[in-house]
Amino acid sequence: MLPKGANLQKIREGKRTYAITPHLPGGFIKPEVMQKYVDVSKKYGGIMKLTSAQRIMITGLKAEDIEAIWEDLGMQPALGFANCVRSVKICPGNAFCKRGKQDSIKLGLELDKRYIKKEMPSRIKLGVSACPNSCAESYVKDVGVIGTDAGWDIYVGGSAGAHPRLADKLIEGLNYDDTLRIIEIVMRYYQKHADIERIGQFIDRIGWEKFKTDILAEFYGEKSAVVEPKVPQTEAGEKIVPLPGGLTEGSLVFGDAITADSVISDIIRVYPQTVPVFRSFGMGCLGCPSSAGEPVTQAAEIHGLNLKELLAALNKVVPANK
């Protein structure tokens, strides 16, 4: 079990070190809070690291110290689901930048308040940039917002990582309230219809025209074009079927046993019922780009797990092995 509010960082010679990353909306921090970070890092031998999500991570920590560290910081552990809204990156906006077209801080903090740590089919990142320079990397975020003289342009489906994808422009020139409204529609649609896949993967699977048509139909108050997909069943009536789409770099097919060489993304695509098993072993980030080409043996090694125990647990829920 992971220490509460911590992530496993390294395993060296059998010794594990952990990191905590308290939530800092927009990357704003008061001097007295920063001082607590410094004091805790010194006391417990940690290293402070600025992250790409505008937070401060303290790494190199021991499991037995984690609870005391949160107490010393005077903060509640950063809780949330592995597959959730991970970050809302915000540029300085027109409050601090001469090139800013819109108030990215106001919009970004509101999005952070509404969505941070909210459970999603996969990990989700948002970016709010006050001008087309996109300093918050909005073009490679799952939901990106970019300010112009005419208002906010909305982009969806971007991602970096092992399988980078530029976001598609959904709509442009929105005011503040309409921007919040269409993002809410995107989030609900994604939650309802996606598998364990990033928004970009989801769009590529169902098609951009369908995604855009359905979102804009609800935004403009028209009749929704969403067609509920039929869930195929096995001969026994079970709804255990391969999931369509998603990143895949392996060759696993329905009916195969899961082996040490089976790729994580293939396993959850073909056998979605294995998701709770992975999570019970502390492997929650199943939407992570790394899982696309990562075999079970490598994942077990990285997470410090017993490979035989993990494989046995996974194959217990595979129909062919019942």
Rank of each mutant, 00 (worst) to 15 (best):
M1F: 11
K4Y: 14
Q9L: 12
K10M: 08
I11V: 07
R12D: 10
E13R: 06
E13A: 05
T21V: 14
H23T: 12
G26N: 03
V33A: 07
Y44E: 03
G46C: 00
G46Q: 00
T51H: 02
S52V: 12
Q54E: 08
M57W: 05
M57Q: 14
G60D: 06
K62W: 11
A68L: 13
N83I: 01
R86T: 14
R86L: 12
G93W: 00
C97W: 08
G100S: 06
E110A: 00
D112N: 09
D112H: 08
Y115K: 08
I116T: 14
E119A: 15
P121R: 09
V128G: 04
S134C: 14
A136E: 02
K141G: 05
V143S: 09
I154S: 08
G161V: 01
A162F: 11
L166K: 11
N175E: 07
Y176K: 01
D177F: 05
R181P: 08
I183W: 00
I183Y: 05
Q191T: 11
Q191M: 13
H193E: 13
D195Q: 13
F202Y: 07
K210H: 09
D214G: 06
I215W: 04
A217H: 10
Y220E: 07
P232H: 06
A236V: 02
E238W: 00
E238H: 04
P242W: 04
G245T: 08
T248I: 15
I264L: 11
I264T: 15
D266M: 07
V270D: 02
V270S: 04
V277M: 00
S280N: 00
S280Q: 04
L286Q: 03
C288D: 04
S291E: 15
S291D: 12
S291A: 13
A292K: 10
I302T: 09
H303N: 13
H303Q: 12
G304D: 01
K316N: 10
K316G: 15
